[in-house]
Each structure stands twice: as C-alpha cells, then as structure tokens.
Design a binder for these strands. Structure first.
Length: 197
DNA sequence: CGACTTTGACCCGCGC
DNA sequence: GCGCGGGTCAAAGTCG
C-alpha cells in the first residue's frame, strides 16, 4: 500500500493540515453542482475559489435528483435501511445506494498538499478504503463521529498530480464544530449560500 | 479498554 | 443477464 493511508483528524499518523493555515501556501479549489457562482473566486491570490467542475470523478446530484429530493426529508437513515440486504446472520451489510435515488449534495475541495487529511475541526472515523479505477491512489471514506451526524467525506489523491488531494463532503453537520477552528466552518456556511441543497 | 484503522466481503446501479 | 466499479459493513487488529 502506497499511502500509509490517512487518518482521522484526531489521532495517529502524520499531523493533519489545519486548513486555515494551509490556505496561503496551498491552492484550494471548491466545487459544487458543477455550477458557476459569478465572480466568487478568490483565486489568483492563492486562496479559495469555487470551480465549475472538478478533476476527480465526483458525483453531484442531477436536476432530477434534486426534484426527487423535494418530497423527501434528508434524513437518510430510513432510506438506508430500506433496500438493504442482509447477511446470513441477519446483519445489514455493504453498499449504500438507496433505491429512491435520494442523495445529499456533495462539495469537493481540491487541495494541493502532501497530507491527505484536512483538519476541518470535526472528528472523522474511517469506514472504508477502495482502489479507484485509473488512479493508483486509493480513495478513503470517512464519516463524522458525532452522534446523529451523517456527514461523510471521501479523500482521494490524484494520479495525474500527486500533490493534489480531493476531499468530497456529503451532507451538512448537525452539530457545532468540535475544535477551535471556525474558519473552515465559516467558509462552508458561506459556501452553502451559493448552492442548493 | 475505548477509539480508531484495516481489509475482505458484500451489495447495488449501470453500461454493455 | 453479466461484469465492473463504487460505496458500505463489520470483524479483527492497532494504538494510546
């Protein structure tokens, strides 16, 4: 395994990047829904920008998905349970593609960094890692450890540019940030203004 | 001992 | 219908 793969923001392994401090020296790009947001780019000076598309294969809800979402609450617990298969002992396992196509929007951050994990102030637990086609680096899957919070994120390094890490967030935290690092939350909250959820 | 990571198995959706 | 790729589960292992 090439990546001594990543970590949650809490323990072990190489120290995570504290995003606000990383920004000045790193190029961070954000995207959502593949839309443009006017001149909301804060780029050339090296900080943050929203971008109309992403380099990594990232899923965003289609317009039809969004339509479907209108009649559903976004508590996907129920969605996950239904349509779930069970193993021999009755345990639920594997996969998480609800039949109703109810999915949360994702927000992708592209970061130039040697470290995979951006410390956004929340605590994450890794629940999976997969090899990705056409990418020599695996993709890691994380879930927010806060009770009742279903936010997930994926972290993947690009093959084409090993210095670039793509972090994809799915969902919105239902709790306050857990570390004294509110810059990133501020960024996110601003970001939501420009995206439909 | 609790929190977390690793990893193979499993399932689903989709394209062919 | 089949195979592939993506996403998740959970047992086992690791660490502080």
């Amino acid at each position: 395994m090439f990546l001594s793969s990543s970590s949650s923001s809490s323990t072990r392994q190489p120290p995570p990047i504290h995003l606000p401090f990383m920004l000045p020296t790193s190029t961070v790009t954000m995207s959502s829904h593949g839309r443009e947001f006017g001149n909301r780019f804060v780029d050339e000076t090296g900080f943050l920008r929203l971008m109309p598309s992403v380099e990594a294969p990232i899923w965003f809800p289609s317009s039809s998905d969004e339509t479907n979402n209108n009649n559903n609450n976004h508590d996907d617990e129920q969605v996950k349970i239904s349509g779930k298969r069970k193993g021999e002992d009755g345990r639920v396992k594997g996969g998480d593609k609800p039949k109703g196509k109810v999915r949360k929007p994702r927000y992708a951050f592209q970061t130039r960094s040697h470290v995979d994990i951006l410390d956004d102030g929340y605590r994450w637990r890794k629940y999976g890692q997969k090899a990705v086609k056409n990418n020599k680096f695996p993709r890691s899957y994380y879930r927010c450890t806060s009770q009742g919070c279903n936010v997930k994120k994926q972290v993947q390094r690009l093959t084409r540019d090993e210095g670039v890490v793509v972090t994809t967030y799915e969902g919105v935290h239902s709790h306050p940030i857990e570390k004294s690092n509110d810059n990133f939350e501020h960024i996110l909250s601003q970001f939501q203004i420009y995206t439909s959820i």
